[in-house]
Design a protein around this nucleic acid. Sequence first.
RNA 1: GCGUCGGUGGUAGAGUGGUCAAUUACAACAGACUGUAAAUCUGUCGCCCUUCGGGCUACGUUGGUUCAAAUCCAACCCGGCGCA
Length: 498
Amino acid sequence: MKDFSFSISKKSIEAPLARVGVIHTPHGDIETPAFIPVGTKATIKSILPEDFQKYVVADACLANTYHLYLEPGSEIVKKHGGFAKMMNYAGPTFTDSGGFQVFSLGAAMGVGVSKIAKREDLTNENIDKNLAENTERKSILSKLKYFFIKNKILFVEILIVLYVGFIARTLGEDMNLLVNFVIMTFTFFFIEILFFRKYRIKNNLEFINLKVDNTEDKKSLVKISENGVEFRSVFDGSKHFFTPEKSMEIQHDLGADIFFAFDECTSPLANYDYQVEALERTHRWAKRSLIHHHKLGVSEATSKMQALYAVVQGGAFDELRKESAKTLGEMNIEINNEKKYFDGFGIGGSFTKEDMAKTVRIATENLPENKPRHLLGIGEIEDLFLGIEYGIDTFDCVTPTRIARNGSIYTKEGKINIFNSKYKSDMSPVCDDTSCYAHKYTKSYLAHLFRSKEMIAATIASIHNLHFIVHLVRDIRQSILEDRFFEFKKEYLERYKK
RNA sequence: GCGUCGGUGGUAGAGUGGUCAAUUACAACAGACUGUAAAUCUGUCGCCCUUCGGGCUACGUUGGUUCAAAUCCAACCCGGCGCA
């Protein structure tokens, strides 16, 4: 493996698991710990690729297999020479395997569960109830309406039954069919008009909508089997089957320097038995991923050898995490009498905020020390400190860009919502750091841009938030080098109020 | 001047005897967001009381009909349009 390597330049003397290192890739180095911004569809949302390089100054970026496979299609990305080339990004890149979509389009679908669960969700033993309740997350008003309309429909149905029954009876008794027909028709319309005239047209439409909403809420877009996962496209509903092999092929076409084995990200609401089942499957998929990756060899898109990371799962269960880390850490295949291992490891899955430290620590303690670890999808500020303390080298997370688009801005004192009325006339800069692009603009201006729905509102906010997080992680790196990690952490988090 | 249509909460605009403090949208005010179904979603949005709930004031103005009026009637005020 010439193109990819990882070296640890310093182990923290304060935090036994924390380290500073460098990941070498064919497209440059990543100085770890590092935050990797997410560009799901080969674009960091709202930021020009050139501006991303110029103003955010991150070491790498990450794109998503599922999304690029569906649109524009991995063949097309391959023709561009990989997604990095397509988006004119020169630095190191990652792709996610699509494993997260197994969760976000499956177990999490319409259930209001995210990657990070709240503890009360888990201690609530009635997980089924939780699921059932959330499948119909309607306001009380809608529920009442729904009830009413539903009953109305029932009522009409009863009328129809009576009507049909009466006709049948009439036929049987050989009465004057026409007279009865006319009488019943009038009765029918009279009753309906009398009781429901106000609700007839509008609510019938609403009823249809409610019906559609409900079925959509309940329907998961994925089906998991041993061989792989059937996805329904979020764009057009078309079916696609992902296997570990398929994921490898797509990711070879996408051409990232670092990519992940196909895994299943389980729901935080899943029970132990399911976690075991999913974990074992993820391990089998990991092996298949490793085999297929080496069978495919060099990426045809980039002509470079890519680095494959396995994904540690196991939910919030210590023994499962330990087993997963050990199993994947030792997992190898033999090619021409040479053993091939994973190049690094992702730590995936979902957990509660409280469990995260423990979960990460157990994973990193049981992973090979000389391989890089990536904490998948984590990126809130306290989590970054925590992850680094427990031996994480890289992070990726959508939070900085997503909350930016929604008007939340990082400051050293905590997140602020730029929509709050007090910022309308706040003349202070968006960012105190003069090296940040957003330093040039006032909060008042940014608030105005957001309020008037101007596109560059998202751009400025996203550049700022990414710059903020990327540089925070860089500062943490520096603090380890200078042996003042805990001091820095304490000072920072005391100032940063959530 | 005559005719005609209309005047509804911050705005637009539904509702045309009780289910109406009034659908909806926008605005406003908050909140959420962790490997992106997300430039998305949720809540509040007349006033008062501690919540379930209750009380009060409101659909141009004033009177009236009615057990009950944003809704019907009359007069007036204002606006659009048409004819003079």
